[in-house]
Amino acid sequence: MSDTFKLSLGNLLQVLAPPLIWFLHLTTVYAAEALICIGPAGAAATMMAWTIALATVAALTALLLTAWTLHRDNARHPQSLGSSRFLRGVSHLLILLSLLGIAWTILPTVFLPTCA
């Protein structure tokens, strides 16, 4: 594999990671809800609460990690121009939007019963 390709892939992942994390978080909680609600009714609420908590912590950690790699790269290449720097800026804002998306996803769990 050529160097350009590795470089491109790294930058690409940096940009796509935040919304991807949001998507994985959403599908995880949705799938968990679907699976938990076909099981026994008693433990559903607790299982759901734990799943959401775990998924959310994992998602936030992953977002933090992405943010950290961005800062690291910015620090390493302070005067770099062109596509990579531009994409890092894009990635920053995507982290913000994804955070908002994740917050909105878990917001309803405060109000709604698990399987109804």
Binding site: G101, T105, L107, T109
Partner: peptide, 27 residues
């Protein structure tokens, strides 16, 4: 990305649990 996370919002009336619906409402 976001547009891939709201397919269920065409299925709000199919009797899916309210919490599931709200995930997609949020998306």
């Amino acid at each position: 990305f976001f547009s891939f996370g709201l397919w269920v919002h065409h299925m709000f009336t199919t009797g899916i649990p309210a919490l599931s619906l709200s995930f997609f409402s949020a998306a």
